[in-house]
Design a protein around this nucleic acid. Structure first.
Lengths: 338, 338
DNA sequence: TTGTAAGCGTTATCAT
DNA sequence: ATGATAACGCTTACAA
């Protein structure tokens, strides 16, 4: 079932059929209807592949995610998918399964599929990406991360430093002074360093000395949140922490679980603050106080930016980091000290 | 950068370049290397779209999901993605955003993109799908659901009836007799009816009379799990339930939250059993006892089945429902009564 | 307003 | 073992 069959059935040329598909106003209403009728009758479905080849564009945006099982993925994807649709674009997903080289593969995979633009998520873009990035003739935008590579890349994310700074301020305002941190591993993702930096700056701002023994590290997942908390607890006799802030909700979940397993309650015996505001963070017990990242919004911005670049034909005129506003969501995991 | 450029650079014909790409052994080792070298030098990336058009296949499987924000999506996708890759296939995702007509759109979207097969998830396939299914010339496989349409469709899922039956048995073996159920809405997904049926059969088997007042319904999401539990609790003086089984982990989460908001503890005052075994179910407090669905496995089976059909050229010889084994995961949300 | 025809970048069939 | 050449199904100048 091709455009030719429709053309024959409608008694017009293939070009006309193509026109009613793409620029219906260029064709006389009467013939247009005739063609549409033929399409209906023959149940014609245009071949998106042929269309893409001929028109030299696939109307597709590529999305590279570090791992599909990351709990923030869903919301981010939703934002990107919705925004894409509003531009008549589709999304082609590439899951790097948390492997660095797979992330690199993602670029050529998407390149081969002729995507118009690429959204890269979450992992830091380092210099080792440069060769790939250089020869790629497709605009790339970063989301929830940034680049330390030579290739300048536009990024959309929240101000991680400021966000954790705000968390510390909030905790101090609730009477906390001995505040611990479960940070992301420093070599892992850029947010690991940034969020730790926000913690340091927060303490500094309130004249609280920074004590490295109050900081533990994890890989952003539940299990390492749990074990990081356990290590903190092992020193708790010295530390006397009253609150812990974390670099990720999922680690906060682990921390909370660990606290309970040690016979401590949240927030009565220890306050915990997360980061992300995943769907589940409001479902658990206690409802988690956390920093909300506007995932859907961030995704939408990335798409919009790409479409802008594509509109003015491949000139990423200016690049930099665009910070979207985060929001501290107060729920039940922080105790107000007298 | 096309196959012709490479050909020119290597001093061969385009056909030869194509051969080293697809059937390297048909070309003399020496020329093969020469071509490969040229590809390297020119940083050639084959155009997947052109390839698809010419070869009349896209090496792609389509996946239709009801909603990307469903918490089970991630694991299912992972299973499907992995299995697909092992067959050299890619996955094109279509998110129906929980809208029935969007689900239908999914078929034509994927059809236009020339996917070799379609995996349809979770929503019941009813007769209204028949017209679309009939004219679709692509094999379809169902996952986590089944079909009541005329078109026979292969399905992979767990035995929902048996699973909830097992839950009831388990609860009875722990001394529970007054067992409530938070079921899925009956018009929603097939599993809604099936799981409720399992509950009924479980009760019947143990000689416990079925009392409709012990059953409430929700749409599988947290909030409705919460309100369903609240409705049950409103009757709790009469009901005297000691345990509740649910049709979904997410609703169980809502139920647990509701119980705590009513000053009741889980499992001390009420036992709760989930369904799905989402990642988070082991992270929360109390760790949830639930029925594990082998999502990744189910996905892998679906892919394998499709590839089988495609191998023997479009003949879905036999179709039916293939049940994958579920597993009751005992954790902490059920109390053993003396 | 509509038709003709030349691609788009591959693959695949024939020859050689 | 390699090279011409005709598809694949559509879009898009250009012509009519």
């Amino acid at each position: 079932m091709t455009i030719r069959d429709v053309a024959k059935s409608a008694g017009v040329s293939p070009a006309t059929v193509s026109r009613v598909l793409n620029k219906p106003d260029l064709v006389e209403p009467e013939t247009r209807e005739r063609v549409r009728f033929a399409m209906e009758k023959l149940n014609f479905q245009p071949n998106a592949i042929a269309r893409g080849l001929s028109a030299q564009r696939s109307d597709t945006l590529g999305l590279i995610v570090p791992g599909i099982t990351d709990l923030f993925f869903n919301e981010l994807y939703r934002g990107i998918d919705r925004a894409s649709q509003s531009y008549g674009m589709k999304v082609l997903l590439f899951n790097a399964e948390h492997a660095r080289d797979r992330a690199l593969d993602g670029f050529s995979f998407l390149g081969q599929h002729q995507v118009s633009g690429i959204i890269f998520t979450s992992k830091l873009v380092t210099e080792e990406f440069d060769p790939v990035l250089q020869r790629l003739r497709i605009p790339v935008v970063l989301v929830l991360t940034q680049s330390t590579a030579k290739t300048p890349l536009q990024a959309f994310r929240v101000d991680d430093i400021k966000a954790v700074f705000d968390v510390v301020s909030y905790l101090v305002s609730r009477g906390h002074h001995r505040i611990g941190m479960i940070a992301g591993k420093q070599d892992h993702e850029i947010t690991g360093q940034l969020r730790l930096r926000g913690y340091e700056m927060g303490l500094q701002h309130f004249g609280i000395p920074y004590d490295p023994r109050r900081v533990e590290y994890g890989d952003y997942r539940f299990d390492e949140g749990y074990s990081a908390m356990q290590r903190l607890l092992d020193r708790q006799r010295d530390l006397q922490l009253t609150a812990v802030c974390t670099a990720a909700d999922e680690m906060a979940l682990g921390a909370i679980r660990c606290l309970y397993d040690n016979g401590l309650r949240v927030p009565e015996d220890m306050s915990v603050v997360g980061f992300d505001d995943l769907q589940i963070s409001r479902m658990i017990l206690p409802r988690m106080t956390t920093v909300a990242q506007p995932f859907a919004d961030i995704g939408a911005h990335a798409v919009r930016w790409l479409m802008g670049v594509l509109g003015q034909d491949q000139t990423p005129s200016e690049t930099g980091i665009y910070f979207l506003p985060h929001r501290l969501v107060e729920r039940e995991s922080v105790l107000t000290l007298v």
